[in-house]
Structure formats: C-alpha cells, structure tokens
Nucleic acid binder design. Structure first.
Lengths: 341, 341
DNA sequence: TTGAAAGCGCTAACAA
DNA sequence: TTGTTAGCGCTTTCAA
C-alpha cells in the first residue's frame, strides 16, 4: 500500500516512535536535527498519516455526525453549510445524513455515525430519541437543535422558541387587520412543526379568531408542498371557505420554502400578495429576500446557532464531564412586503 | 469502552473468529447452532462492530468523498441530495465538502478524504487536478462531474455539454427576436462557467450579434450575485448602455439561483420579465419552477447524473482494473414564462 | 466446523 | 533524547 510511518523512520534512520513525536508535537521532545531529518523524509516520501489507524489507536476520528431532514430545504442547507464551515475550521469533518423526517432513516444514520466513532452528534430536526434502538447513543455528546421532548445528561440543546415566534408572526398579521388566518405547516408529528402550529393557534385564540383544523394544511417542506397547501386553503372549494364562507386573507407559513410555493399558488389563483392574501413565513433564509414580493419572515440566526452549536459540542467533546448547556433563542421578524407593511 | 467481538465470543463460548464468520457471512461456514448462540449473544450484549477497526484491517471504509462548491446553491444541494440518496442505498456514507470554488479548500478536503481512506471521490465543480500537491490522488477511483481539462486512467467523467446547452438557450432567446443579450456567469476561471460563456458567445457570433465583454457580468452563484450582476447589465449607467446606447433586452444566466436575483433586479428597476427583459437560466432546479414568472431554464437531469455517477464509481471501486467510463449529456430546455413564450 | 495467531498503522507507556 | 513494544478491534490464513 502507501508509505507508512515505518518507511519514514527507516528513511530518517530513527525509530517509528520519534516520527510520531514529530507529527504530534509530543508527548516527548525531539532534537532539532532529528526533527529536520524526519520532516525531510516525510516530504520526500510524501508520507501522510493514516487517519483510520490513528483513530483506532485511541485518538479521535475528528468527525461529527449531523442529522438533517432534507438539504433541499434552504433553511437546512444554510444550517448545514454554517455548521460545516465552523467545524471544518476546527479540523472536524462533518458527516451529514438526510433523514427525510423518516424514523428508520434517522436511526440508520445515527447507528452508522456511532459505529464510525464520531466524536459528537447534532440533530437538527425530527428525531425522537426516546426508546430508540440505537446502540451507544447514551455515551455520545449530543447537541439538539430543537425540542425533542427529551432530556438527558449527555444532551445539550439550542432551541428556537417556535411557539412564541409563531405567535409573534401571527400577531403581526392580526395588526394588519386579519382575522381569518390560515396555517401551512410541515408534516404532522414533527415536534418543531407542532410548536409553530400551537403558536398560531394560541395567538388566534387570544384574539378570539378562528383556529380550527380547517385552517391548517400540512404539507411537505418544499415549494411543491407549500403550493398545494395554499391552493387547499385558498380555493373556493376548500375547507376554510366551506366552514367560514370566505377565504383566509392571510397565511402563516412554517417555512420560507413553502412560502415560495404559496406565493406561486396565489399567482395561479389570480390573487395578489399582500393585497388579497398576506403572508408571513418562518425561517429567514436568503431565498426569502428575493421572492416577489419579498417575504416577511421570522428569521432564525443560523450563524449564531451554528457557532453556539460548535462551542457547546466541543465543550463536551473535550471534557466529557463538562455539564450540558442549554439555550433558547427568539427569532426576529424581518419585514418584507408580503405582510402588507 | 464498548462491548467488543471478544466479549461476544466469550458470552457465546466460541472463538472470536467464529463471531466474524457470522457477522460477515464468511469466509467459513458456521453451524446453525453456533450461529444462533452467537446471534443471541450479539443482540443480548448490544454488540456493534467497530467500523474503524474493520476499515483498518483491510475492509473498506464504505465511504466516498464529494466535493461541491456550495450547498447553498440549490443546484448543488439537489445534486448532493441525489448523490447521497443513491450511495446511501448501497451502504456508502457520503462525506461532503464545500469548497467555495477555493483551491485551498479543495485541496484541503481532498487530502482529508484521502487520509480518511474513502473508497472513491466525486468532484462536482471547480477543481483543477493538475499539479495538485494532494498525496495519493492517483490511486483513487475518481469521478468528475464536469470538465476539468484533465484526463487520467483513474478518472471517470459525466460531463454536461455546457457549451452546446448554453448556445441552445441563447438561440432560443434569439428566436424571440433578441439581439442584445447579456450574460451573467459565475466566478471567472471556473471551467464549467467558461463553457457556458463560450456557448453564449459562439451563438451570438453565429447570429452576428454583439458578444463583447461589456455584455458579461461575473458574479457569485447566489441570489445576491445574480441580482447585482443584472443591475450592472441593465442599469442606465452600465457598460452595455454605454457601448450600445441601449439596454440588453434579454439575459442568459448561468444558474437558476442567479436568475432569481436577476428577476428581482428587474423588479427593482421597474422592468417586466419577460416583456422588458427576457431571461433564460441554466440548471433546471425545483426552485426555477416557482419564481414569478417561472424560469425558462436549461435543465440538467440530476437524478440521472447521480445514478450514473454511482454506477461508474462503484464499477471502479469494486474492480480497480475496470476501465474508466465517460459520458456527455445534453440538457433539455424547460420552457417557463421568463423567455416570452 | 472451529481455534489460534498474525498483522493493518498508529500512539504512548516504559526502558534505555 | 530516542528505541522498544503492547495493544486498539478487526479479518483472514493456517492449523487442528
């Protein structure tokens, strides 16, 4: 195979151990002359340490596992990019797994990551840790980026306050005079989606506005999903019309990518945004700034989430006894032109 | 640490070797009774094979490295998702690296992947392999998803015919009567971008239309990039106006994500798409179908690219002597409403 | 059909 | 300051 540490040792006329000392800057000092000879041999032979062997021997794999629902959702693409950028700057490789909100996929990737001895794990959505058959999860430093309804010693978390943020967004629509406000959410049974729906409902109840199930449309977190959900809520034969005798005049949409589909649906129905239908979405991705009209959206600070995620997780990786950290973040409403401001 | 194969062997009253035979279904047969005892011990102890040790011993890492410019570009997000889905179905883990078209990043990730003993590599853009200081690249099965201007025995390729596809797109604009057609491209010096620019120029020259540098705007492959590039080409003080005394009436845009920014720029300038400015982009991502107006775009078949990529690369991984494969694909023009049809 | 043992490439404790 | 050596957990050859 390739050139090994032994080859370098022979070429430099030293023992393999000294080569290690040079490579790792320790744990023993090496004289300047020997070090130079070894470094010369390394570059002459084109030696590269075998990361697999090093990991097996007891060092770490310098990698972390990142579970995300779907990279085609720009929110998770931005998150994945930010996470990767931060960890990569510290020498960690990020292993990414798309779970599609599917429990089997989640467990499969989780087990793969653990079998491959990642140094830590980040869950960005959808996972339910309780009762999971995954082996070895309890010993892993874990960081959770949303509420999984589960606490454990080895879990740090950075939560977005979806309920409060959704309520704020809906309240903004109410201030514009809307009472019949539809809600487009991701697939049901996803904890993070439930939070948004509850926020919508609580705020509608608070204002004594309708908050029945006929105003909620569940759909995939994609343009297509948002599009069909909006058609469902806004069309003349839809449930909102049946129940209330008119269309919703505003929509709260749980993700930017769905809102893009919803805007398109309005266009298909010949309705103007925000004149006929006001829209506020959730996420605050770059894409939200370039729709027509630009989206008003509840922005989550992805850069901050990513950098905090890194420091929380590295704390626990470097010192397994370090206690877990928790933070809850509020989003900020970015006013575009889709809400009617 | 965790439970090892030795623990299983002891619990089942057999030697460690037999445990391996059971786990790997070979290379030696195991009697039904022994097998049952071992399987019982495995599940009772919650044993998981250590993937690192297995990889070191000579098995493979069951992983491939995937280099991509930026996952925030929806084209590469879709590609990454498709690649991951296909390889994951075959038991491979895809390690993804964002290079941002930066050569240093490319080489860093490449070296990391090789040091970690990936079974193969996929480059999706921007890399220039020639003269690279990366150690061990020659021995890797490599698949290249665009033209790197480099051939080697270990490299398979799936190329999109960017030049011809760009020309087709520009020709379509010409058929609508446009003569002054601007070109928005990604960063210069990226091979794949050069192909598109050459296609635009060749087709403009063929029709005896202007094809000077004043009609080209280079920008980041992002909404922002496309937006500022379009402002540059369409504004009254821009170079096209200075040289030709009028604005371009059409734009060929090298990526969907830039086209989204370009549409927005038209909106900012008070110009209608396609009436004042016709736009055709390149890529064919899902996002292109939900802009207002929907984009006419030169679609690349990402699913087909991903599945072909997998079969090409697995051929070479399973049999290093398998000869490399090459394919060149044409895109198909998806007609939206941004071109004026 | 099963057991014993070599060794993948590395780190680090121990010896010199 | 440097050399020797015992493993990390696994696969697989060889012997029984």
């Amino acid at each position: 195979m390739a050139v090994t540490r032994l080859d370098v040792a022979r070429a430099a006329g030293v023992s393999p151990a000294v080569v290690s000392y040079v490579l790792n800057n320790g744990p023993r000092p090496v004289s300047a002359g020997t070090r130079a000879r070894i470094e010369e041999a390394i570059s002459r032979l084109g030696y590269r340490p075998n990361a697999i062997a090093s990991a097996l021997r007891g060092g770490s794999t310098q990698s972390i596992g990142f579970l995300t629902p779907n990279l085609r959702n720009p929110f998770y693409a931005e998150l994945a990019e930010a996470i990767e950028r931060h960890f990569s700057a510290c020498g960690y490789l990020v292993l990414t797994g798309n779970t599609y909100y599917d429990r089997t996929q989640e467990e499969r990737y989780l087990q793969t990551f653990i079998d491959r001895k990642v140094d830590g794990l980040i869950f960005s959505s959808g996972i339910s840790l309780t009762g999971s058959p995954v082996v070895g999860l309890e010993e892993q430093p874990v960081l959770v980026l949303d509420d999984v309804g589960y606490q454990a010693k080895n879990i740090s978390s950075i939560q977005t306050d979806d309920l409060a943020d959704a309520a704020t967004a809906v309240e903004h629509l109410q201030r514009h005079g809307h009472t019949l406000i539809g809600c487009i959410a991701g697939p049901p049974n996803i904890p993070i989606e439930a939070g948004k729906i509850n926020g919508w409902r609580r705020q509608q109840d608070f204002a004594a506005n309708p908050s029945g199930d006929e105003l909620i449309a569940y759909a995939e977190s994609s343009e297509d999903g948002g599009n069909s959900a909006a058609l469902l809520l806004l069309s003349e034969h839809g449930r909102p019309w049946t129940v209330h005798g008119r269309r919703p005049t505003a929509l709260f949409v749980a993700s930017d990518v769905q809102a893009i589909g919803a805007i398109y649906a309005c266009y298909e129905l010949g309705m103007k945004v925000p004149d006929d239908v006001a829209i506020i979405s959730f996420g605050g991705t770059k894409t939200a700034a370039f729709t027509l009209p630009p989206l008003s959206t509840m922005r989550q600070d992805i850069e901050f989430i990513a950098s905090t995620a890194m420091s929380y997780l590295l704390d626990r990786i470097k010192d397994p006894l370090h206690e877990s950290s928790h933070m809850t973040l509020r989003g900020n409403l970015v006013i575009g032109r889709s809400c009617g401001c």
